[in-house]
Amino acid sequence: MHLFTLFLIDAWFAWIPAVGFAMVFNVPRNMLIYCALGGSFAHSLRFLLMTMGIPIEGATFIASGAMGFLGVYWSRKHLVPRPVFTVAAVIPMIPGSLAFSTILGLMELNSSGYSVKLMAIITENGLSTLFTLSALSFGLALPSILIYRGRPIV
């Protein structure tokens, strides 16, 4: 029951960034609801997978893959291109903090000199950013790579 409450809270807080960034990307008004649904679906799915012990890269890959297939369904239904929903929906999962801390670490390395401890943190953060981001985009591209293979979806 406790897990379920956490799951609901996670889903609630995930739709807000999805809609916020969808508005920055000027997604049409009637599609915002799908961005919100997709955002909370993908982020809460990833939360659930991570509590089951799957590492963040794998969980992100599964969640964004699921979002990619959901996006195919919605885009064929409404005749709009897929990035309109999918990109805004996965925005809450982008490892932005890790990316910034990698670059900040590199700047710190430059100003304060090389240290093994700092380099270890930079490498871990950088690799995690790279793999999470690749997993995210690869998951979204799964339908067009595996099923459509170059044919248009809409």
Partner: peptide, 17 residues
């Protein structure tokens, strides 16, 4: 709010395709 999420996702999906 300043994470360039769209360019990053577009970059990887361009390379993949």
């Amino acid at each position: 709010l300043l994470v360039p999420g769209f360019p990053f996702i577009n970059a990887i999906s361009d390379v993949l395709k």
